[in-house]
Amino acid sequence: MNAFRPSLLFLALAMAAVLTPAPGSARAEEIVVIVAADSAVSQLSRSQVTNLFLGRYKQLPGDGRAHPSDLAELKDNFYRRLVNKTPGEISAYWARLVYSGQTVPPDQIDSIETMIDQIRRTEGAIGYIPRSRLVEGIKPVYQLED
């Protein structure tokens, strides 16, 4: 490790990063936070949603342990609307928590169909989808204003 040359690695990584495009911008859609239709939770406040998705608190009010999940295609937009943070800031936030042994971020789900399926069949599951995709078996408990 004495041969470790941070300066050369620094230049290489910086150039690679500059040449790589940033993640795409978020789409403007109405987003609802959802739980299973038979959940005891009927409504959440913004603070409660923030605490659950930022890993501060792991319990759904009156309904046991929460299992939050992020939806990949809406994630950037969701956190911008919820806490006005950029993807980089959310990433830095989780880096602090993960690498100081506090907690791990929500699982990431790639499609709306998978998210709905997970909410329906997993006790305590909580996620978010576009309002236009609400279906039977799930219910909205919080709506994020645009």
């Binding site: 990433s91 830095a92 936030y93 880096a95 602090r96 928590l97 100081s100 042994g101």
Partner: peptide, 18 residues
């Protein structure tokens, strides 16, 4: 465990976090 004396003390090696 990291010694937790101030906000951020136990994540101070994680430069990306601050």
């Amino acid at each position: 465990l990291g010694l937790d004396t101030t906000l951020g003390s136990n994540s101070r090696l994680i430069g990306y976090a601050f």
